[in-house]
Nucleic acid binder design. Structure first.
Lengths: 136, 136
DNA sequence: ACAGCAGTCTACTGATACAATAGACTTAAA
DNA sequence: TTTAAGTCTATTGTATCAGTAGACTGCTGT
């Protein structure tokens, strides 16, 4: 299951994708439209900015906007930034790998099965982009 | 990510699958062989029994054993018993479905993407069985 | 019958991560 | 120079995860 935080992030990104090219969008606007607690949303957007998915402008007329064409940003990338690993086990994670303590990966059936599901999941999440989160 | 509990469950089931047809196996044996805290393992095995994946025998010569041929029990079934949903969002879960509060599933791009990943994941986890978790 | 083995059950505890909140600070535009 | 907006630090409540303790029940062999 994706965490609430990750779900909020994806909803916010979908909203911003729909406004791509139209200048900065207020945190408060996203918060109201997408029903996300504003203070929580602040921290999420900041993380996405630090990962170069979003950019921001301070002061009057400021707000957040997507840093590059939404079609160039995959869901996998966004999920990793706010939600961590996509794989079901650390020993099959590409970006957050940790070795299994008590099994040999070459012969572990569980490892094989989970590596397959990781591949299947990534095939979709690397392909889908923020542009496909736009409403309607 | 699968919880520690789910990982322990799958490791224990793999061990039991390797001993299928050889009578009851002690909790303590599984605990030592698979390096799982014994008290934690107790609760996990009990859950698996209540879901009819395992059976048990009390007293001397007792222990746990798999209830039916390991080839008949999918990883998806086992994971659902101890770990809950496989889908990444409640609104695309088949067994633990919850409606999204603020989006229309028919038009929600996120819903579509997550439904696809659920299908891809299940295709693998419904097919893989406990028999494939046997070591070596 | 009973001794001891092994699973069952109830209850609790500590740690961690998730979710959310408060308030002071910085930057930029009008 | 006032005001709007994002930024940062810090704290809090809550739930779930992970693990522990100990008493109880049922089975088997002697």
């Amino acid at each position: 299951m994706l965490s609430k935080k990750t779900q909020y992030a994806l909803k916010a990104l979908g909203y911003l994708a729909g406004k791509y090219g139209q200048g900065p969008v207020l945190i408060s606007e996203i918060s109201i439209e997408k029903k996300i607690p504003i203070k929580f949303l602040e921290t999420i957007l900041l993380e996405l900015k630090q990962a170069n998915i979003l950019e921001s402008k301070k002061g009057k007329g400021g707000g957040y906007y997507i840093a590059e064409n939404p079609k160039k940003i995959s869901l996998a990338r966004a999920i990793r930034v706010v939600g961590g690993p996509i794989a079901l086990l650390p020993c099959v994670s590409l970006n957050f790998y940790e070795k299994c303590l008590d099994c040999d990966e070459a012969t572990c059936g569980l490892n094989k099965a989970m590596a397959l599901t990781r591949d299947a999941t990534l095939k979709i999440l690397e392909k889908k982009t923020l542009a496909e989160l736009i409403d309607g």
